[in-house]
Amino acid sequence: MSPHLVLRVVAKMLIPLIALFAFYVQFHGDFGPGGGFQAGVILAAGIILYALVFGIDAAKKAVPPSWIRIGMSFGVLLYGGTGVATWMLGGNFLDYTQFAPESTHAAGQHWGIFAVELGVFCTVTCAMLAIFYAFGSRTPELSDEDW
């Protein structure tokens, strides 16, 4: 029997909830504390917990390293692309009002903040996971006696 049985059962219960909380923080950031950065870190922490309990190879199957390379760049491109889109619509860089100029309750601002926070979320999650994968993959399998 694995000595980590209790850890695995509890982690299996908690990791979906951690991911759910990350998305709550992401999409509720306009109304409460939180935003893309915090949500990205929380989601990455959930995946790192999975890697610590079930092994880094299992985590790499769940979140392949190729996704991380793509996601990291996609986030920055989404942020920059929002700015370029506001250029194209005739405003300044990152001037979100251009998305809905006639809106009376600043819908353009809401769309802009949503896109930008999503970009931050992607980049932060993937960068944190990239750093963890890079460090974690270099460590040889430690037997517990080595501590």
């Binding site: 950031g29 306009d30 109304f31 409460g32 504390p33 935003g35 950065f37 990291m72 760049s73 986030g75 920055v76 942020y79 920059g80 700015g83 860089f93 990152l94 979100y96 309750h105 600043a106 601002q109 809401h110 802009g112 903040i113 930008v116 926070e117 970009g119 931050v120 980049t123 932060v124 993937c126 960068a127 944190m128 990239a130 750093i131």
Partner: peptide, 30 residues
């Protein structure tokens, strides 16, 4: 901006340039 959280408004809209810089910094670190 019509959102209750002033911090989000400042970070993402008023100081969008700075947050873009921060995102690029994190990207560069990774």
């Amino acid at each position: 901006i019509f959102i209750p959280n002033v911090v989000t408004a400042v970070l993402a809209s008023y100081r969008g340039y700075d947050t873009f810089g921060e995102t690029v910094v994190i990207f560069m670190a990774g």
